[in-house]
């Protein structure tokens, strides 16, 4: 049992590319739910269309990666409009249903035989991001004590965390403006906002599109980082991890998604690494937990940690507990 190994793995998870990508996606979700009150339970759908926008453009159509990125963003906008136009005039739960269903329908659609000539079906697509890695300025690995990052990984992390910072900055500027004030008013009470002359539908749509584009960017980055897309990686669990991340950090806090993602991935990789190490070294008997169970079991423990957090810090780590004491009169 090498504790140093476990810890360094966990740190790598906390600051790695995956954490950056999930943080980015959660920034978009936070704009939806945290600042506008939109119940988006299908955020992974935006990631899917963003990822496939890049992959299909390059692999199937032979376009440049950067054109593909624009196409991915365009697809997120279209998806937001398709989901929003029929539902945003209705009560909030309709959007929730539409987004859950929409994301799943998209996944089945992209993996269908019918779409396979374009999307690669169940096998997905790969090796389409060479243009991105050609720009990699890092030539050697980075060693920070026990932490080792490959040059490739470092490049994805740099781009990922930069995008997280940039989008967070944009969201900060937006929500601290009169536009953001209307958004928060819509979250609190749509009718009140409407009674003061605000076009609630338009604001909700703007928020849905912008948050969706950020989600699409995150999806595109996953595709680029792994040089592959597969429809089954965009399953509903991803959306729920994003919700967990947002709530863990604190919804409607600018830094909430960032902190949430770091902690979430720290916990997930820590537990994964710990359990693997412990079973391998015989600390935990293989009769209790065997190797293949670890992947699932770690999320059980992550869930447990979330549960504890909700009990002791219900507003999230950065949340203002005062907000929860406000009641309806």
């Amino acid at each position: 049992m090498n504790f140093m190994d476990v810890l360094s793995n966990a740190l790598r998870g906390a600051f790695g590319a995956e954490a950056a990508i999930y943080a980015l996606a959660a920034v978009g979700l936070n704009l939806h739910f945290g600042f506008t009150g939109l119940l988006n339970f299908g955020h992974v759908g935006f990631m899917l269309v963003g990822a496939y926008g890049v992959a299909v453009s390059v692999s199937t159509w032979g376009l440049s990666l950067w054109v593909g990125l624009l196409i991915g963003i365009g697809c997120s906008i279209v998806l937001a409009l398709i989901l929003g136009i029929p539902t945003l005039r209705l009560r909030g739960d309709y959007l929730a249903i539409a987004t859950i269903a929409g994301a799943e329908v998209l996944r089945y659609f992209y993996r269908s035989d019918w779409a396979a000539p374009i999307t690669g079906g169940v096998y997905g697509l790969r090796q389409f991001a060479n243009e991105f890695f050609a720009l990699n300025p890092y030539s050697s690995n980075l060693e920070l004590g026990p932490l080792l990052f490959s040059a490739r990984n470092l490049w994805v992390m740099t781009v990922g965390w930069s995008l997280v910072v940039l989008t967070s900055l944009l969201v900060y500027l937006l929500v601290h403006s009169p536009w953001g004030r209307v958004l928060r008013a819509v979250r609190e009470d749509e009718l009140a906002a409407r009674s003061l002359g605000k076009n609630v539908y338009a604001y909700k749509m703007q928020s849905l599109v912008l948050g969706g584009v950020i989600g699409g960017l995150a999806g595109a980055l996953i595709a680029i980082a792994t040089q592959s897309v597969n429809p089954d990686n965009f399953n509903p669990a991803v959306t729920f991890y994003l919700w967990a991340i947002m709530i863990l950090g604190g919804a409607s806090r600018i830094l909430g998604p960032i902190l949430g993602s770091i902690i979430f991935w720290f916990l997930a990789t820590f537990l994964d690494s710990f359990l693997r190490n412990a079973t391998a070294s015989g600390l935990i008997s293989p009769d209790v937990i065997s190797g293949p169970d670890v992947g699932a079991l770690r999320f059980v423990f992550v869930g447990l940690c979330l549960l504890l957090l909700m009990i002791y810090r219900p507003a999230g780590i950065l949340g203002d507990p005062k907000e929860l004491r406000l009641d309806v009169r």
Partner: peptide, 27 residues
């Protein structure tokens, strides 16, 4: 219909019409 998680002042400021900063691109 108090906008609960807005301050009292923000509640009132929201009422102002034709605010330039309420357009997304200007925000």
């Amino acid at each position: 219909k108090a906008l609960m998680r807005l301050t009292v002042l923000e509640n009132v400021m929201l009422g102002a019409t034709e605010q330039r900063g309420e357009r997304m691109l200007a925000a």
